[in-house]
Design a binder for these strands. Structure first.
Length: 149
DNA sequence: GCCAACGTTGGC
DNA sequence: GCCAACGTTGGC
């Protein structure tokens, strides 16, 4: 990636067990954000390496809730994960932008054939995922959120 | 709380 | 470099 190049906005999805790291905790970090650490999976790491400053993402609660609950922004691009000395693992920082008007449940996503190709549906264990511009728009619609917010 | 799927680890 | 064992994840 060239320095200073502003590419098209990209979209992502971050999955978290609310008992480990919740949307409420993310919001409490404010604009400083927090590193999305602890990822020990190459595919998820590679996804994070593609993220650019200012990209947007969904914040998804797994476990009992299973719903997208908030919008986040990438506030630091991939850098070494400070929770390990293992140089293989990178992470980005994200900050909360806003909660969604209405949580979008996994059930609702699975029920929409336009979203059938999402990794969330196809590869449920991938903890950090890309989201297509179309899926972003559709889900923002369901969530009562302006896709450009 | 179970279990299937998956990904990483480590022995060979 | 293969593959079995193991640990983890996440939906149900």
């Amino acid at each position: 990636m060239e320095e200073g190049y502003l590419g098209p906005m990209q979209y992502w999805l971050f999955k978290s067990e609310p008992s480990a790291w919740s949307w409420q905790e993310q919001v409490a970090r404010g604009d400083a954000g927090e590193q999305w650490d602890g990822v020990r999976n190459y595919q998820a790491r590679n996804v994070m390496r593609q993220m650019a400053l200012g990209d947007r993402g969904f914040f998804y609660h797994s476990q009992a809730e299973r719903a997208i609950v908030g919008i986040v922004e990438i506030c630091a691009e991939a850098h070494p994960d400070t929770t390990t000395d293992d140089p293989r693992w990178d992470c980005v920082d994200i900050r909360a932008v806003m909660p969604v008007e209405a949580p979008v449940t996994l059930d609702a996503i699975k029920a929409d054939p336009r979203l059938a190709d999402m990794p969330l549906v196809r590869q449920p264990r991938l903890s950090v995922q890309p989201v297509s511009a179309e899926a972003w728009r559709i889900i923002c619609d369901m969530a009562g959120v302006d896709p450009s917010s």
